[in-house]
Amino acid sequence: MAVQAEPVAERRAAPFPISFYRTAVGKKVVMALTGIVGFGYVFAHMLGNLKIYLGETALNHYAEWLRTVGVPALPRGGFLWLGRAVLIGALILHVHAAWSLARISKAARPSGYAKQDYVAANYASRTMRWGGVIVLLFIIYHLLDLTGGQANPNFVRGEVYENVVASFERWPVAIFYIIANLALGLHLYHGLWSLFQTLGWSHTRFDPVRRKLAIAFALIVVAGNISFPLAVMTGAIG
């Protein structure tokens, strides 16, 4: 069919952020922005968690600090909840955009090829959606495990260090964490490179290092995160 004038006009009628989000390119930009939030969080989270290696008190202090930072300007836990709100919002947008864009793309190729040989698309780029789902499942489990404690029989609120160790001492859980973080690594490896494209950050001088930057940051996050279950399993911490 010819270009339909109506949806465009409708989009125009809505205020900027909404009209922007209604387009596929707009959604993609939102994914990139929320992806940056997510990446920022896991990166910082990983750095924070490195305190595990400084011992129980360091980590627990850090967790406590997270709850008291900003006090008295904010109520206790205020900063944490603010952060949580941003994270939840970002996650919802990110997942919603991913889901609706995936639907558009599915509809764009209703019947596939008998054979398709990829020349450039790599494993990471082709597993963004499933990798994302694994990460989402991980997050849910992770919250039940280390934040709420419902999935962790030995959970004690406030004893962050103990909780982590208790969790990873169950080897299937540790393996699950490792797998999930590898999936996250792939997701970040493609995602970090991809967001430069999505946000139009392209420049002939800078383009060659985009891929390297993405690899480096994905590796740092994965290496840091995987080191925790490994350390517990090998008894380096406990």
Binding site: V3, P7, V8, S105, S125, S194, Q197
Partner: peptide, 21 residues
């Protein structure tokens, strides 16, 4: 961009397969 989307094409997730072929 909007005409492109209205035609029912998918959306780009930066696979770079297009450039390769």
């Amino acid at each position: 961009v909007e005409a492109m989307e209205a035609e029912g094409f998918g959306n780009c997730t930066n696979h770079a397969e297009c450039e390769a072929v």
